[in-house]
């Protein structure tokens, strides 16, 4: 960062503090879910915030600041992964998913463990879009920009991912009930 850039960002610090920093909690939860490692998640969120501050003059007030931050975080994350692995690390599971058959009804009385456990059991690429849509409340367009994938892919991953998530739910719910019965 040059001296001029630092001077420039200093002027917008108060706006940054008001607009961007309040999203740090949610951003961390997202990073923690994706990275599964507290140190990595903290590092990722801190770098996201540094990058966001450096580029804050490019943020358009009135637009979704959280979506903008999530986009920076996802780009950093994918760059890190690219630098660590020379080939794609997620196997293409689309073919298998083409046959996702039955979508059971959403069971009632779900616990947090049921939901997060089910989410954890589906492939990561589907977790990502579901979390960005349902937890981070990003629009399909914002998800497409954050993950650098076409809009149609976002929609199909959401569709399949949700079906998979639901198919995992009853198992975890019944598992919990079995566990309770045993104790």
């Amino acid at each position: 960062m040059t001296e001029q850039q630092i001077a420039g960002t200093a002027g917008s610090w108060q706006t940054f503090e008001a607009e961007a920093l309040p999203h740090a909690d949610r951003l961390f939860r997202l990073a923690m879910w994706l990275e599964r490692d507290r140190h990595e998640a903290e590092d990722l969120v801190q770098e996201t915030m540094v990058r966001a501050l450096q580029s804050f003059h490019r943020y358009q007030p009135g637009t979704n600041c959280r979506a903008w931050l999530v986009t920076i975080l996802q780009h950093l994350r994918s760059n890190r992964r690219r630098s660590r692995y020379r080939s794609p690390i997620v196997p293409d599971t689309d073919d298998r998913l083409m046959t996702t058959p039955f979508v059971p009804p959403v069971p009632q009385m779900l616990t947090d463990e049921d939901v997060l456990g089910a989410l954890e059991r589906i492939p990561e690429r589907f977790q990502e879009v579901i979390v960005l849509c349902d937890v981070e409340e990003l629009s399909y367009k914002e998800i497409a920009a954050a993950l650098e994938i076409p809009l149609g892919t976002v929609m199909s991953r959401l569709h399949r991912g949700r079906a998979m998530l639901r198919s995992e739910l009853p198992a975890s719910a019944s598992g919990r009930m079995r566990q309770r019965a045993e104790t």
Binding site: R29, M32, W33, V106, L110
Partner: peptide, 22 residues
Amino acid sequence: GRRALRGALRGAFERAPHLQPR
């Protein structure tokens, strides 16, 4: 049902102890 699942997911993220920042 779908609305409830979305809500449950969002709530679980907000409450899960292991996802909270220091």
